[in-house]
Design a protein around this nucleic acid. Structure first.
Length: 820
DNA sequence: AGGCCTACG
DNA sequence: CGTA
DNA sequence: GCCT
């Protein structure tokens, strides 16, 4: 790339040149006539020569300062090339004056104010046209080079996006452009509907055709100063206009809607119904929890993309906007009317605290997220006194994540646990800027940060691998999935392993469909709106499973599945499988011994009554509140043995299921070795057993006998705990037994463990199958090369999301991994 | 035709 | 073979 | 049973 620096402040220019050559290996090109020789750089006689040279070498990093007093047409010649970037370095008057003074020969008398102003006026007038064309403005309000270099690093001048926008940026700017056409008196909103990277339609908000424009009084509600009901508003939203403009027939399977503002609930409903697969927004808007849930459940991806091409100016000059990403559990927006119209910037201002919060407006390309264990000494009391766990509803965890743009300034750069004051934390929680860690474990990975190497990969609904697809939490095709699962179970029982796998895969595929499947055309994936090209749905073969699904669509049932389900032996088989220690093989044998019920088998002595009773307990779903309270008991005891542990509740709970089968708790600790963690787990197990909470250890830990040096501890504990749904009850009839898995791990492999223990099975399976194609082998605790056996160092992995990007996999929200 | 996730007990 |  |  070829960068031209323009500025009134020579010192700032010099600092920037040095920074660019030092940290990004830039070569300086200058015009003989413009820049004194002693400034260095490769010399040219004319603009044309310099630009031609740059064209030949456009792939290297080049910089010039010779454009500052060029004519407009020279600047335009420069800007026409596709590899150029004009950067304006603005500076405080103080800095400019200092630079000027330093340039003057030592003999000159001190510069008086009037003389300085005359010089400034002239210099500014000469550069005004050039400055106004700059694609990036950087402001230097600092006195020292070091401080300014930090600003330069933050600005990330070398970001290729400014030179050539990504697709996201491209469409988002089009959406912004569309919004300029808006005549709504409340707010400008624009949307662009795309399909296969082509624009299908655009829209902006305003009154419908034939009515007076909103700005001309067409909509009473928007023009009146007083609050009126949203029902009074006649304005169509930009999203609606874009959808209406496109029409139903032109919206295919992979349509993406770009909105410069996050859609309201009303639009979200329409977006889901028209079959849009992804929504990308720019401006943070109070994302209603219901909107978020709606998109999640419907399998519509909601992404946030910042406008990278916008100049990240100095922090203190930026307005404040909280770039909430879609994963933030926002407060419910009480005011339905507020939709697109009444958002005030102050609503988004950060919670006060820590003094100066002028930095909170930094662009999201620099946002980092910090995890703050509330049990760290500085925050421990805060957490309890705040009742933060109550603030954050059903998730009962002790760690929270605070996005750092919401942190008080002094903590911005720190990775260590910051301390924040009481009311700051409370207000941030109330404003929805604190995330429950159970869902987003240490997720300080920001895919928009170019330092993180690569952006998130997009999900691929057509992939045969479940780890590329989005599976709505609640499938609209539940019955079909159920029928396929019965066929799967039957194949397992018959020991037809691979046939069973195929049915599992088919069911997972069906689970990834965001819409109810009504006809056989629905199970083909449309390639694009303007052709009839369809692709065959992976994992649903042309011969067998396809026929079964068509049978289901025609008759509402699959006869084979009905038969299996109604057969007594199948019922017994299922019941047997749910007993701990009895798998498909034994269940198959027992179910064909002529017995008709579990009771009969107990009488025969084939199975025990205890096993049956326990199975009945464990079969009951566990509500989320109980999962978190059981995890709470475990962690409470864990803390007496291990100060400040890091933990995550994984499994179905993390996948957002309303009821879990068991409780999966993953624990680690910074600075502990795996062996120390294993010893801790053994102690925890003993403690929980002693207090009568853990009633059964299903995988016996081999505890050290104290004589030998050999420790073979386990890092996984599988057990059963007695849980009372009624708090404090002593009535044994109220006790339900629940499965608990406690896993400890090395801190470096924490995120990998989270990934592994979150599931679902099909997701994990396809994940491993996929990385295997790149010779990587992946298990719960390590990634290594299959051939060389070299282990991949994961100590730099900052989050599960970062890990997935590292593995070249898209980040699928845990709630959308429910594929089996 | 050959593979289908991986590891542990 | 059973289990995560 | 389905994919490569």
């Amino acid at each position: 790339m070829f960068i031209a620096l323009v500025s009134l402040d020579k010192n700032t220019v010099q600092w920037t040149l040095q920074y660019l050559s030092r940290e990004h290996n830039f070569t300086q090109l200058e015009l003989e006539s413009q820049v004194p020789k002693e400034r260095g750089g490769q010399r040219f006689d004319t603009h044309t020569q310099m630009i031609e040279y740059a064209t030949q070498h456009w792939q290297s990093n080049l910089v010039t300062t010779s454009l500052h007093s060029c004519t407009c047409s020279d600047v335009d010649t420069f800007l026409r090339r596709p590899f150029t970037l004009l950067v304006a370095l603005e500076s405080s008057i103080e800095n400019i004056k200092k630079s000027l003074t330093q340039q003057l020969p030592p003999s000159t008398p001190a510069l008086d104010l009037a003389a300085f102003l005359r010089w400034f006026d002239g210099a500014y007038r000469a550069q005004r046209d050039t400055l106004s064309r700059a694609q990036l403005n950087i402001y230097n309000g600092h006195e020292t080079e070091d401080a300014f270099v930090d600003v330069l690093r933050e600005a990330n001048i070398v970001d290729e996006q400014r030179i050539r926008p990504s697709w996201d940026t491209y469409f988002m700017e089009l959406a912004d452009l569309a919004s300029q056409r808006s005549n709504c008196m409340k707010r400008r909103v624009g949307a662009v509907l795309t399909q296969d990277k082509r624009v299908v339609s655009t829209g902006y908000n305003g009154t419908p055709k034939g009515l007076l424009n909103c700005a001309d009084g067409g909509c009473k509600r928007c023009n009146s100063g007083v609050e009126m009901g949203f029902a009074e508003c006649l304005c169509l939203h930009a999203e609606e206009n874009a959808l209406l403009e496109a029409g139903r027939g032109r919206i295919g399977e992979c349509a993406v809607l770009y909105c410069n503002t996050c859609p309201c609930l009303g639009c979200a409903v329409k977006i889901v119904q028209t079959g849009i697969s992804q929504v990308v927004y720019n401006h943070g808007y109070r994302v209603d929890q219901k909107t978020l849930e709606l998109f999640r459940n419907a399998g519509v991806v909601l992404r946030h993309t910042p406008m990278k091409r916008r100049a990240p100016s100095d922090k203190s000059t930026t307005d404040e906007e909280c770039d909430d990403s879609d994963e933030i559990a926002q407060n419910q927006d009480q005011d339905d009317n507020s939709s697109q119209a009444t958002l005030s910037e102050s609503d988004l201002a950060p919670a006060e605290g820590g003094g100066d919060h002028s930095g909170s407006g930094i662009k999201s390309s620099t946002i980092k997220t910090a995890s703050i264990p509330l049990n760290s000494p500085s925050l421990n009391q805060l957490a309890t006194s705040l009742g933060l766990l109550i603030t954050h509803s059903d998730i009962d965890v002790n760690d929270v994540i605070v996005k750092s743009e919401c942190l008080p300034n002094k903590h911005k750069q720190q990775h260590a646990h910051p301390s924040v004051c009481h009311h700051w934390l409370r207000d941030s929680a109330a404003a929805g800027r604190i995330l429950p860690i159970a869902l987003y474990v240490l997720d300080d990975y920001n895919p928009n940060n170019s330092e993180d190497g690569s952006d998130d990969l997009p999900p691929n609904p057509q992939s045969k691998n479940a780890c590329f697809r989005i599976h709505p939490l609640n499938s609209p095709n539940e019955h079909l999935v159920h029928a396929l699962r019965i066929l799967k179970q039957d194949r397992v029982a018959r020991d037809e392993r691979w046939n069973a796998l195929a049915y599992s895969r088919a069911a997972a595929m069906v689970k990834s469909f965001p819409h109810r499947i009504r006809s056989k055309d629905d199970i083909r994936l449309q390639l694009s709106y303007d052709s009839n090209d369809t692709v065959h749905t992976k994992n649903i073969g042309e011969k067998k499973i396809r026929a079964k699904i068509e049978e289901y669509l025609n008759y509402g049932r699959i006869s084979e599945a009905e038969t299996i389900q109604n057969s007594p032996s199948h019922k017994l088989y299922n019941a047997l499988c749910s007993i701990q220690g009895i798998g498909p093989r034994r269940a198959y044998e027992l179910s064909r011994t002529g017995a008709s019920s579990l009771g009969e088998l107990v009488e025969r002595g084939s199975i025990t009554q205890e096993d049956v009773t326990l199975a009945q307990h464990l079969e009951l779903g566990i509500p989320r509140t109980e999962v978190s309270s059981i995890a709470g008991v475990v962690m409470e005891n864990a803390r007496t043995l291990l100060p400040h542990p890091t933990h995550a509740i994984c499994g179905g709970y993390r996948r957002g299921k309303s009821e879990s089968n068991d409780i999966d708790i993953l624990i680690t600790h910074h600075g502990y070795t795996l062996q120390q963690m294993n010893e801790f787990l053994a102690n925890l197990a003993r403690r929980l057993q002693d207090m009568g909470f853990l009633t059964k250890l299903m995988r016996q830990l081999s505890l050290s006998d104290g004589h030998s040096d050999k420790h073979d501890y386990q890092s996984t504990l599988l057990g059963v705990v007695a849980s009372s749904s009624k708090y404090g009850t002593t009535d044994s009839a109220q006790v339900t037994f629940r499965r608990v898995d406690i896993i400890v791990c090395h801190p470096h492999s924490f995120h990998l463990e989270v990934l592994a223990w979150t599931g679902s099975v099909m997701y994990e399976r396809d994940l491993r199958a996929f990385v295997k194609r790149r010779n990587l082998k992946l298990n719960a605790s390590s990634v290594y090369n299959e051939h060389t056996n070299n282990e991949v160092d994961l100590s730099g992995i900052r989050s599960e999301r970062h890990l997935l990007a590292f593995l070249h996999l898209p980040w699928i929200a845990p709630e959308n991994r429910n594929c089996d």
